[in-house]
Design a protein around this nucleic acid. Structure first.
Lengths: 216, 216
DNA sequence: TAGATTGTTAATCGATTAACAATC
DNA sequence: TAGATTGTTAATCGATTAACAATC
Protein backbone atom coordinates (compact mmCIF):
# COMPACT_ATOMS: atom_id res chain seq x y z
CA UNK A 1 0.00 0.00 0.00
CA UNK A 2 2.25 2.74 -1.30
CA UNK A 3 -0.07 5.72 -1.07
CA UNK A 4 2.43 8.51 -1.35
CA UNK A 5 0.28 11.59 -1.75
CA UNK A 6 -3.35 12.16 -0.90
CA UNK A 7 -3.46 14.97 -3.41
CA UNK A 8 -2.89 13.94 -6.98
CA UNK A 9 -3.34 16.62 -9.57
CA UNK A 10 -5.75 15.82 -12.40
CA UNK A 11 -4.77 16.29 -16.01
CA UNK A 12 -7.26 19.13 -16.21
CA UNK A 13 -5.62 20.58 -13.13
CA UNK A 14 -2.19 20.58 -14.77
CA UNK A 15 -3.70 22.50 -17.66
CA UNK A 16 -4.87 25.18 -15.26
CA UNK A 17 -1.43 25.65 -13.71
CA UNK A 18 0.00 27.85 -16.49
CA UNK A 19 -2.93 30.23 -16.04
CA UNK A 20 -2.42 30.34 -12.29
CA UNK A 21 1.24 31.00 -12.92
CA UNK A 22 0.55 33.88 -15.25
CA UNK A 23 -1.86 35.49 -12.79
CA UNK A 24 0.54 35.00 -9.88
CA UNK A 25 3.39 36.60 -11.80
CA UNK A 26 1.21 39.65 -12.43
CA UNK A 27 0.53 39.89 -8.71
CA UNK A 28 4.24 39.51 -8.00
CA UNK A 29 4.99 42.45 -10.31
CA UNK A 30 2.50 44.51 -8.34
CA UNK A 31 4.34 43.55 -5.17
CA UNK A 32 1.55 41.51 -3.57
CA UNK A 33 2.75 38.96 -1.03
CA UNK A 34 -0.35 36.87 -0.42
CA UNK A 35 -3.35 35.89 -2.49
CA UNK A 36 -6.52 34.04 -1.46
CA UNK A 37 -7.64 31.09 -3.61
CA UNK A 38 -10.89 32.95 -4.29
CA UNK A 39 -9.08 35.73 -6.15
CA UNK A 40 -7.30 33.27 -8.44
CA UNK A 41 -10.59 31.46 -9.06
CA UNK A 42 -12.38 34.67 -9.94
CA UNK A 43 -9.78 35.72 -12.50
CA UNK A 44 -10.25 32.42 -14.34
CA UNK A 45 -14.00 32.00 -13.88
CA UNK A 46 -13.69 28.75 -11.97
CA UNK A 47 -14.65 27.54 -8.49
CA UNK A 48 -12.55 28.35 -5.43
CA UNK A 49 -12.51 24.75 -4.29
CA UNK A 50 -10.98 23.64 -7.53
CA UNK A 51 -8.14 26.11 -7.14
CA UNK A 52 -7.55 24.94 -3.59
CA UNK A 53 -7.45 21.32 -4.65
CA UNK A 54 -5.01 22.07 -7.42
CA UNK A 55 -2.80 24.11 -5.12
CA UNK A 56 -2.92 21.46 -2.40
CA UNK A 57 -1.37 19.01 -4.87
CA UNK A 58 1.39 21.36 -5.91
CA UNK A 59 2.22 23.69 -3.09
CA UNK A 60 4.94 23.05 -0.55
CA UNK A 61 3.29 25.12 2.17
CA UNK A 62 -0.38 25.17 3.17
CA UNK A 63 -2.35 28.39 2.75
CA UNK A 64 -2.89 30.56 5.78
CA UNK A 65 -6.46 31.13 6.94
CA UNK A 66 -7.47 34.81 6.66
CA UNK A 67 -4.42 35.50 4.53
CA UNK A 68 -4.19 33.12 1.60
CA UNK A 69 -1.18 31.67 -0.18
CA UNK A 70 2.30 33.14 -0.51
CA UNK A 71 2.66 34.41 -4.07
CA UNK A 72 6.41 33.84 -4.31
CA UNK A 73 6.22 30.39 -2.84
CA UNK A 74 3.35 29.33 -5.15
CA UNK A 75 5.22 30.52 -8.22
CA UNK A 76 8.26 28.49 -7.23
CA UNK A 77 6.13 25.42 -6.49
CA UNK A 78 4.21 25.56 -9.76
CA UNK A 79 7.37 26.10 -11.80
CA UNK A 80 8.97 23.17 -10.07
CA UNK A 81 5.93 20.94 -10.61
CA UNK A 82 5.82 21.83 -14.30
CA UNK A 83 9.53 21.21 -14.65
CA UNK A 84 10.19 24.78 -15.76
CA UNK A 85 13.12 24.98 -13.39
CA UNK A 86 15.15 22.31 -15.15
CA UNK A 87 15.07 24.12 -18.54
CA UNK A 88 14.40 21.50 -21.18
CA UNK A 89 16.33 21.68 -24.41
CA UNK A 90 14.59 20.63 -27.57
CA UNK A 91 15.14 19.75 -31.22
CA UNK A 92 12.65 21.11 -33.73
CA UNK A 93 12.08 19.32 -37.03
CA UNK A 94 10.34 21.07 -39.91
CA UNK A 95 11.29 24.71 -40.41
CA UNK A 96 8.14 25.86 -42.23
CA UNK A 97 5.94 28.76 -41.18
CA UNK A 98 4.86 27.06 -37.99
CA UNK A 99 8.37 25.89 -37.13
CA UNK A 100 9.68 29.41 -37.59
CA UNK A 101 6.85 30.77 -35.48
CA UNK A 102 7.81 28.49 -32.61
CA UNK A 103 11.50 29.27 -32.99
CA UNK A 104 10.80 33.00 -32.88
CA UNK A 105 8.50 32.88 -29.89
CA UNK A 106 10.46 34.38 -27.03
CA UNK A 107 7.77 33.51 -24.50
CA UNK A 108 9.12 29.96 -24.28
CA UNK A 109 11.94 31.07 -22.03
CA UNK A 110 9.26 31.49 -19.35
CA UNK A 111 8.06 27.95 -19.91
CA UNK A 112 11.39 26.25 -19.44
CA UNK A 113 11.68 25.44 -23.14
CA UNK A 114 14.84 26.10 -25.12
CA UNK A 115 14.83 25.12 -28.78
CA UNK A 116 18.51 24.32 -29.17
CA UNK A 117 18.62 23.04 -32.75
CA UNK A 118 16.35 22.88 -35.80
CA UNK A 119 16.33 20.42 -38.69
CA UNK A 120 14.96 20.46 -42.22
CA UNK A 121 15.51 18.50 -45.39
CA UNK A 122 15.38 21.64 -47.57
CA UNK A 123 19.02 22.59 -48.42
CA UNK A 124 17.95 26.23 -48.82
CA UNK A 125 17.09 26.38 -45.13
CA UNK A 126 20.11 24.51 -43.82
CA UNK A 127 22.73 26.83 -42.36
CA UNK A 128 20.26 29.63 -41.72
CA UNK A 129 19.98 31.02 -38.24
CA UNK A 130 16.51 31.85 -36.94
CA UNK A 131 16.17 33.75 -33.70
CA UNK A 132 19.61 32.51 -32.66
CA UNK A 133 18.99 28.88 -33.56
CA UNK A 134 20.79 27.13 -36.39
CA UNK A 135 19.09 24.92 -38.98
CA UNK A 136 20.84 21.58 -39.63
CA UNK A 137 20.30 18.93 -42.30
CA UNK A 138 18.22 15.90 -41.31
CA UNK A 139 21.26 13.62 -41.59
CA UNK A 140 22.77 15.23 -38.51
CA UNK A 141 19.68 14.75 -36.31
CA UNK A 142 20.90 11.76 -34.37
CA UNK A 143 24.45 13.08 -33.91
CA UNK A 144 23.35 16.49 -32.60
CA UNK A 145 20.53 15.20 -30.39
CA UNK A 146 22.84 12.77 -28.66
CA UNK A 147 25.73 15.18 -28.38
CA UNK A 148 23.63 17.98 -26.89
CA UNK A 149 21.46 15.55 -24.89
CA UNK A 150 18.23 16.94 -26.33
CA UNK A 151 15.31 15.27 -24.57
CA UNK A 152 12.38 16.90 -26.38
CA UNK A 153 11.52 16.64 -30.07
CA UNK A 154 9.14 19.14 -31.68
CA UNK A 155 7.52 17.96 -34.91
CA UNK A 156 6.30 20.71 -37.23
CA UNK A 157 6.55 18.82 -40.52
CA UNK A 158 3.65 18.05 -42.85
CA UNK A 159 1.57 15.07 -41.69
CA UNK A 160 3.01 12.47 -44.10
CA UNK A 161 6.54 12.92 -42.74
CA UNK A 162 5.61 13.03 -39.07
CA UNK A 163 5.85 9.31 -38.22
CA UNK A 164 9.23 8.95 -39.92
CA UNK A 165 10.61 11.98 -38.14
CA UNK A 166 9.18 10.70 -34.89
CA UNK A 167 10.98 7.38 -35.32
CA UNK A 168 14.24 9.18 -36.05
CA UNK A 169 13.84 11.34 -32.94
CA UNK A 170 13.15 8.29 -30.78
CA UNK A 171 16.26 6.57 -32.19
CA UNK A 172 18.19 9.74 -31.36
CA UNK A 173 17.30 9.33 -27.70
CA UNK A 174 14.50 11.88 -27.34
CA UNK A 175 12.18 11.16 -24.40
CA UNK A 176 9.23 13.40 -25.19
CA UNK A 177 7.60 14.52 -28.42
CA UNK A 178 5.54 17.62 -29.00
CA UNK A 179 3.61 16.85 -32.16
CA UNK A 180 1.97 19.55 -34.29
CA UNK A 181 1.08 17.26 -37.19
CA UNK A 182 -2.41 15.85 -37.59
CA UNK A 183 -1.34 12.24 -37.19
CA UNK A 184 -1.63 9.69 -34.43
CA UNK A 185 1.99 8.82 -33.72
CA UNK A 186 3.09 5.36 -32.67
CA UNK A 187 5.93 5.37 -30.14
CA UNK A 188 7.55 2.99 -27.65
CA UNK A 189 5.77 3.24 -24.34
CA UNK A 190 8.60 4.99 -22.52
CA UNK A 191 8.34 7.96 -24.88
CA UNK A 192 5.83 10.71 -24.10
CA UNK A 193 3.73 12.32 -26.83
CA UNK A 194 1.82 15.56 -26.55
CA UNK A 195 -0.36 16.48 -29.50
CA UNK A 196 -1.00 20.10 -30.35
CA UNK A 197 -3.37 19.60 -33.17
CA UNK A 198 -5.00 22.57 -34.90
CA UNK A 199 -7.49 20.27 -36.60
CA UNK A 200 -8.70 18.91 -33.28
CA UNK A 201 -8.96 22.27 -31.62
CA UNK A 202 -10.81 23.76 -34.55
CA UNK A 203 -13.12 20.75 -34.79
CA UNK A 204 -14.34 21.51 -31.28
CA UNK A 205 -15.07 25.12 -32.12
CA UNK A 206 -16.61 24.34 -35.47
CA UNK A 207 -18.96 21.68 -34.10
CA UNK A 208 -20.17 23.95 -31.32
CA UNK A 209 -20.71 26.82 -33.74
CA UNK A 210 -22.53 24.60 -36.23
CA UNK A 211 -24.80 23.38 -33.45
CA UNK A 212 -25.53 26.91 -32.27
CA UNK A 213 -26.31 28.10 -35.77
CA UNK A 214 -28.60 25.12 -36.44
CA UNK A 215 -30.63 25.95 -33.35
CA UNK A 216 -31.37 29.47 -34.54
CA UNK B 1 -39.04 15.21 -20.74
CA UNK B 2 -37.36 16.30 -23.91
CA UNK B 3 -34.87 13.49 -24.35
CA UNK B 4 -33.93 13.97 -27.96
CA UNK B 5 -31.01 11.65 -28.41
CA UNK B 6 -29.87 8.73 -26.33
CA UNK B 7 -26.39 9.17 -27.73
CA UNK B 8 -24.71 12.41 -26.84
CA UNK B 9 -21.13 12.74 -27.91
CA UNK B 10 -18.64 13.62 -25.18
CA UNK B 11 -16.18 16.45 -25.58
CA UNK B 12 -13.41 13.89 -25.74
CA UNK B 13 -15.40 12.11 -28.41
CA UNK B 14 -15.59 15.23 -30.55
CA UNK B 15 -11.82 15.49 -30.32
CA UNK B 16 -11.51 11.99 -31.71
CA UNK B 17 -13.68 12.73 -34.75
CA UNK B 18 -10.98 14.50 -36.78
CA UNK B 19 -8.76 11.44 -36.40
CA UNK B 20 -11.57 9.11 -37.47
CA UNK B 21 -12.17 11.39 -40.42
CA UNK B 22 -8.57 11.32 -41.49
CA UNK B 23 -8.42 7.54 -41.31
CA UNK B 24 -11.73 7.15 -43.16
CA UNK B 25 -10.55 9.42 -45.96
CA UNK B 26 -7.47 7.26 -46.37
CA UNK B 27 -9.70 4.20 -46.69
CA UNK B 28 -11.88 6.06 -49.18
CA UNK B 29 -8.84 6.78 -51.32
CA UNK B 30 -8.05 3.07 -51.31
CA UNK B 31 -11.58 2.38 -52.50
CA UNK B 32 -12.81 0.57 -49.40
CA UNK B 33 -16.56 0.66 -48.93
CA UNK B 34 -17.01 -0.66 -45.40
CA UNK B 35 -14.91 -0.57 -42.26
CA UNK B 36 -15.47 -2.31 -38.90
CA UNK B 37 -15.21 -0.21 -35.73
CA UNK B 38 -12.38 -2.45 -34.60
CA UNK B 39 -10.15 -1.34 -37.46
CA UNK B 40 -10.66 2.34 -36.65
CA UNK B 41 -9.98 1.64 -32.98
CA UNK B 42 -6.78 -0.20 -33.75
CA UNK B 43 -5.38 2.61 -35.89
CA UNK B 44 -5.81 5.03 -32.99
CA UNK B 45 -4.88 2.72 -30.12
CA UNK B 46 -8.26 3.00 -28.43
CA UNK B 47 -11.05 0.59 -27.53
CA UNK B 48 -13.59 -0.61 -30.07
CA UNK B 49 -16.52 0.20 -27.83
CA UNK B 50 -15.47 3.79 -27.62
CA UNK B 51 -15.40 4.10 -31.38
CA UNK B 52 -18.87 2.53 -31.59
CA UNK B 53 -20.25 4.89 -29.01
CA UNK B 54 -18.82 7.90 -30.80
CA UNK B 55 -20.12 6.71 -34.15
CA UNK B 56 -23.55 5.95 -32.71
CA UNK B 57 -23.86 9.61 -31.71
CA UNK B 58 -22.83 10.91 -35.11
CA UNK B 59 -23.80 8.42 -37.76
CA UNK B 60 -27.06 8.54 -39.68
CA UNK B 61 -27.09 4.80 -40.38
CA UNK B 62 -26.33 1.96 -37.99
CA UNK B 63 -23.40 -0.31 -38.70
CA UNK B 64 -24.07 -3.66 -40.31
CA UNK B 65 -23.15 -6.78 -38.37
CA UNK B 66 -20.42 -8.79 -40.11
CA UNK B 67 -19.70 -5.84 -42.42
CA UNK B 68 -19.09 -2.66 -40.45
CA UNK B 69 -19.85 0.96 -41.29
CA UNK B 70 -20.16 2.57 -44.70
CA UNK B 71 -17.02 4.66 -45.22
CA UNK B 72 -18.67 7.27 -47.46
CA UNK B 73 -21.64 7.65 -45.21
CA UNK B 74 -19.50 8.03 -42.08
CA UNK B 75 -17.36 10.69 -43.70
CA UNK B 76 -20.44 12.69 -44.64
CA UNK B 77 -21.92 12.29 -41.16
CA UNK B 78 -18.75 13.35 -39.33
CA UNK B 79 -18.23 16.34 -41.61
CA UNK B 80 -21.80 17.39 -41.04
CA UNK B 81 -21.51 16.96 -37.28
CA UNK B 82 -18.35 19.04 -37.17
CA UNK B 83 -19.91 21.73 -39.34
CA UNK B 84 -17.29 21.29 -42.07
CA UNK B 85 -20.00 21.29 -44.68
CA UNK B 86 -21.09 24.85 -44.03
CA UNK B 87 -17.61 26.32 -44.65
CA UNK B 88 -16.98 28.90 -41.94
CA UNK B 89 -15.32 32.16 -42.93
CA UNK B 90 -13.00 33.76 -40.42
CA UNK B 91 -11.13 36.96 -39.61
CA UNK B 92 -7.58 36.61 -38.34
CA UNK B 93 -6.06 39.32 -36.15
CA UNK B 94 -2.30 39.53 -35.64
CA UNK B 95 -0.17 38.80 -38.69
CA UNK B 96 3.01 37.70 -36.92
CA UNK B 97 4.80 34.41 -37.52
CA UNK B 98 1.96 32.35 -36.13
CA UNK B 99 -0.70 34.33 -37.97
CA UNK B 100 1.17 33.86 -41.23
CA UNK B 101 1.58 30.15 -40.50
CA UNK B 102 -2.19 29.77 -40.11
CA UNK B 103 -2.90 31.84 -43.21
CA UNK B 104 -0.53 29.71 -45.26
CA UNK B 105 -1.83 26.40 -44.03
CA UNK B 106 -3.76 24.94 -46.92
CA UNK B 107 -5.03 22.02 -44.86
CA UNK B 108 -7.77 24.21 -43.41
CA UNK B 109 -9.83 23.83 -46.56
CA UNK B 110 -10.45 20.25 -45.39
CA UNK B 111 -11.66 21.48 -42.02
CA UNK B 112 -14.28 23.87 -43.31
CA UNK B 113 -12.23 26.90 -42.37
CA UNK B 114 -11.65 29.81 -44.74
CA UNK B 115 -9.61 32.73 -43.45
CA UNK B 116 -11.22 35.51 -45.47
CA UNK B 117 -9.46 38.57 -44.08
CA UNK B 118 -6.51 39.40 -41.85
CA UNK B 119 -5.88 42.46 -39.67
CA UNK B 120 -2.82 44.05 -38.12
CA UNK B 121 -1.90 47.41 -36.64
CA UNK B 122 1.52 47.43 -38.32
CA UNK B 123 1.28 49.70 -41.42
CA UNK B 124 4.10 47.75 -43.07
CA UNK B 125 1.90 44.66 -43.20
CA UNK B 126 -1.31 46.37 -44.30
CA UNK B 127 -2.02 45.86 -47.97
CA UNK B 128 0.12 42.74 -48.23
CA UNK B 129 -1.43 39.60 -49.56
CA UNK B 130 -0.50 36.33 -47.86
CA UNK B 131 -1.58 33.08 -49.45
CA UNK B 132 -4.38 34.92 -51.25
CA UNK B 133 -5.62 36.77 -48.19
CA UNK B 134 -5.35 40.53 -47.82
CA UNK B 135 -4.13 42.27 -44.65
CA UNK B 136 -6.29 45.22 -43.53
CA UNK B 137 -5.73 47.88 -40.88
CA UNK B 138 -7.40 47.33 -37.49
CA UNK B 139 -9.74 50.28 -38.06
CA UNK B 140 -11.57 48.38 -40.74
CA UNK B 141 -12.20 45.28 -38.60
CA UNK B 142 -15.81 45.98 -37.76
CA UNK B 143 -16.75 47.15 -41.25
CA UNK B 144 -15.27 44.11 -43.02
CA UNK B 145 -16.48 41.52 -40.51
CA UNK B 146 -20.05 42.78 -40.78
CA UNK B 147 -19.97 43.21 -44.53
CA UNK B 148 -18.54 39.73 -45.19
CA UNK B 149 -20.56 38.18 -42.34
CA UNK B 150 -17.45 36.66 -40.72
CA UNK B 151 -18.54 34.50 -37.79
CA UNK B 152 -15.17 33.31 -36.51
CA UNK B 153 -12.35 35.43 -35.12
CA UNK B 154 -8.82 34.06 -34.83
CA UNK B 155 -6.57 35.83 -32.34
CA UNK B 156 -2.84 35.49 -32.95
CA UNK B 157 -1.69 38.70 -31.28
CA UNK B 158 0.65 38.95 -28.29
CA UNK B 159 -1.12 38.26 -24.98
CA UNK B 160 -1.48 41.89 -23.82
CA UNK B 161 -3.56 42.83 -26.88
CA UNK B 162 -5.74 39.72 -26.92
CA UNK B 163 -8.63 40.91 -24.70
CA UNK B 164 -8.94 44.22 -26.58
CA UNK B 165 -8.96 42.46 -29.93
CA UNK B 166 -11.48 39.96 -28.59
CA UNK B 167 -13.82 42.79 -27.52
CA UNK B 168 -13.51 44.37 -30.97
CA UNK B 169 -14.31 41.07 -32.67
CA UNK B 170 -17.35 40.56 -30.47
CA UNK B 171 -18.59 44.07 -31.27
CA UNK B 172 -18.07 43.25 -34.96
CA UNK B 173 -20.57 40.40 -34.67
CA UNK B 174 -18.23 37.41 -34.46
CA UNK B 175 -19.85 34.37 -32.81
CA UNK B 176 -16.82 32.20 -32.09
CA UNK B 177 -13.24 32.97 -31.15
CA UNK B 178 -10.19 30.80 -31.69
CA UNK B 179 -7.65 32.14 -29.26
CA UNK B 180 -3.91 31.45 -29.57
CA UNK B 181 -2.85 33.94 -26.89
CA UNK B 182 -2.02 32.78 -23.37
CA UNK B 183 -4.85 34.75 -21.74
CA UNK B 184 -8.18 33.78 -20.26
CA UNK B 185 -10.59 35.81 -22.38
CA UNK B 186 -13.79 37.27 -20.98
CA UNK B 187 -16.69 37.18 -23.45
CA UNK B 188 -20.49 37.48 -23.40
CA UNK B 189 -22.02 34.06 -22.86
CA UNK B 190 -23.41 33.72 -26.38
CA UNK B 191 -19.87 33.87 -27.81
CA UNK B 192 -17.84 30.66 -28.02
CA UNK B 193 -14.14 30.58 -27.16
CA UNK B 194 -11.69 27.85 -28.05
CA UNK B 195 -8.21 28.19 -26.64
CA UNK B 196 -5.23 26.80 -28.49
CA UNK B 197 -2.58 27.56 -25.98
CA UNK B 198 1.01 26.48 -26.56
CA UNK B 199 1.86 27.21 -22.95
CA UNK B 200 -0.82 24.84 -21.70
CA UNK B 201 0.05 22.07 -24.09
CA UNK B 202 3.73 22.32 -23.32
CA UNK B 203 3.06 22.46 -19.58
CA UNK B 204 1.49 19.04 -19.80
CA UNK B 205 4.46 17.58 -21.62
CA UNK B 206 7.01 19.32 -19.43
CA UNK B 207 5.39 18.19 -16.18
CA UNK B 208 5.20 14.57 -17.33
CA UNK B 209 8.81 14.64 -18.49
CA UNK B 210 10.00 16.25 -15.26
CA UNK B 211 8.18 13.58 -13.28
CA UNK B 212 9.69 10.78 -15.36
CA UNK B 213 13.20 12.19 -15.02
CA UNK B 214 12.81 12.63 -11.26
CA UNK B 215 11.90 8.97 -10.92
CA UNK B 216 15.09 7.83 -12.59
C1' DT C 1 -25.38 -23.03 -37.62
C1' DA C 2 -21.14 -20.51 -36.18
C1' DG C 3 -18.84 -16.42 -36.00
C1' DA C 4 -17.95 -11.69 -36.88
C1' DT C 5 -19.66 -7.75 -35.95
C1' DT C 6 -22.94 -4.51 -33.95
C1' DG C 7 -25.38 -2.15 -30.00
C1' DT C 8 -26.85 -1.71 -25.09
C1' DT C 9 -26.72 -1.87 -20.23
C1' DA C 10 -23.97 -1.95 -15.98
C1' DA C 11 -19.56 -1.10 -13.50
C1' DT C 12 -15.62 1.56 -12.87
C1' DC C 13 -12.86 5.40 -12.93
C1' DG C 14 -11.78 10.33 -12.75
C1' DA C 15 -12.98 15.19 -12.19
C1' DT C 16 -15.97 18.66 -10.47
C1' DT C 17 -19.11 20.52 -7.22
C1' DA C 18 -21.32 20.91 -2.73
C1' DA C 19 -21.43 20.72 2.20
C1' DC C 20 -19.05 21.13 6.24
C1' DA C 21 -15.37 21.30 9.71
C1' DA C 22 -10.90 23.59 11.08
C1' DT C 23 -7.94 27.59 11.89
C1' DC C 24 -5.92 32.05 12.65
C1' DT D 1 -15.43 36.49 19.54
C1' DA D 2 -16.72 36.82 14.57
C1' DG D 3 -15.43 36.23 10.11
C1' DA D 4 -12.44 35.28 6.38
C1' DT D 5 -10.17 31.91 4.68
C1' DT D 6 -8.34 27.21 4.50
C1' DG D 7 -8.80 22.07 4.00
C1' DT D 8 -11.46 17.66 3.91
C1' DT D 9 -15.06 14.48 3.11
C1' DA D 10 -19.22 13.20 0.50
C1' DA D 11 -22.23 13.72 -3.64
C1' DT D 12 -22.69 14.43 -8.35
C1' DC D 13 -21.52 14.39 -12.92
C1' DG D 14 -19.19 12.76 -17.09
C1' DA D 15 -16.30 9.54 -19.64
C1' DT D 16 -14.30 5.08 -20.16
C1' DT D 17 -14.27 0.22 -19.76
C1' DA D 18 -16.32 -4.30 -19.21
C1' DA D 19 -19.87 -7.67 -19.82
C1' DC D 20 -23.45 -9.24 -22.45
C1' DA D 21 -27.27 -9.58 -25.76
C1' DA D 22 -28.70 -8.94 -30.70
C1' DT D 23 -28.12 -9.52 -35.68
C1' DC D 24 -26.86 -10.88 -40.26
Amino acid sequence: MQEQDTHVLSVQGIKRLPYYLKYLKELQTKGMEYVPAGAIAESLNIYEVQVRKDLAAVSSQPGKPRVGFSVDSLIADIEHFLGYDCAHTAALVGVGHLGKALMSYSGFADYGLDIAAAFDCDPALVGQCIHGCEVFPMERLSEICRQRKLLIGIITTPAPQAQGVCDALVRAGVRAIWNFAHVHLHVPKDVLVQNEDMAVSFALLSSKLAQTLRQE
